[in-house]
């Protein structure tokens, strides 16, 4: 049995040593981790453009991704009235989760514009709830701002093999390509995920066993794209 004094001394030394090792490690890896997180986020945005770029993001190196964002990607932060918010905040650094908690009057949304071979492609960010947890996605529009040219989805905790297929199965986001956000009477309807497609212009086939995740995506798309309409109408 050691004395109480020894135990206290031992505990203090142990804490200091562990603390020093960890803080040293943290400061050594922080710049790399920050860069990795930024590239990860940029890749998520670019994955909506997979089928309209010469080289999909999966085949690009980290430096190419950063270079593309510096040269070909415009970023704007908008409010829900459709006005561009000036400031230092870059659209890619906007936290969708934090903005979703704010009241609509204060909420900000990011807008990315890619200057590619087909002209200016706007990429919208949408955020909503799936079955278990949050789902989000990036929707790329053709230069007419009415037709989807690409989409990518991600989720926090959907069921693997069912709801998680919105991310894991690339054929799901592929189904959105060419769908129109407007119906035949030119009213905004967004694109719905349904069990049986009756209206191929505005509906996509859902994933079997993931009806509620699909409903979540439908709701997220209607609400999320609606936020961008004031801006898109003004700038068309």
């Amino acid at each position: 049995m050691h004395s109480t004094g020894y135990v206290i001394k031992f505990t203090i030394i142990m804490t200091i040593v562990a603390g020093l090792i960890l803080s040293g490690m943290f400061y050594a890896t922080e710049p790399i981790a920050k860069k990795n997180a930024a590239v990860f986020n940029k890749r998520a945005i670019l994955s909506a453009l997979t089928y309209s770029m010469d080289k999909p993001q999966a085949e690009m190196t980290d430096d190419e991704v950063i270079e593309l964002f510096n040269t070909k990607m415009e970023q704007k932060v908008l409010n829900l009235k459709g006005e561009v918010v000036e400031g230092d905040l870059l659209a890619e650094n906007l936290s969708l989760a934090a903005e979703a908690k704010k009241p609509e009057a204060e909420r900000l949304i990011p807008l990315f514009t890619y200057n590619g071979k087909d002209g200016k492609t706007n990429i919208l960010a949408v955020y909503g709830s799936g079955l278990w947890d949050k789902v989000w996605g990036y929707i790329a529009l053709k230069p007419d701002n009415k037709t989807i040219s690409g989409a990518s989805f991600d989720h926090k905790g959907e069921t693997p093999g069912l709801g998680a297929e919105i991310k894991d199965d690339p054929t799901f986001s592929y189904r959105f390509i060419g769908k129109s956000l407007y119906n035949k009477n030119n009213e905004f309807t967004s694109v719905s995920v349904v069990k049986k497609v009756n209206n191929p212009d505005n509906e996509v086939d859902g994933i079997g066993g993931a009806t509620l995740t699909g409903d979540g995506i439908t709701e997220m798309m209607v609400r999320g794209i609606n936020y961008y309409l004031p801006y898109l109408k003004k700038n068309n």
Binding site: Y6, F10, I21, L22, M25, N36, A37
Partner: peptide
């Protein structure tokens, strides 16, 4: 000291796991 044996073991494990986590964040995000 045998009184804080388990705590010492946990500190060792937690330190190493945090090192792995930080390293992985930098190596393959």
């Amino acid at each position: 000291p045998s009184q804080v044996r388990m705590i010492a073991q946990l500190v060792v494990i937690a330190t190493l796991v945090t090192i792995v986590e930080l390293a992985l964040k930098a190596a393959n995000y």
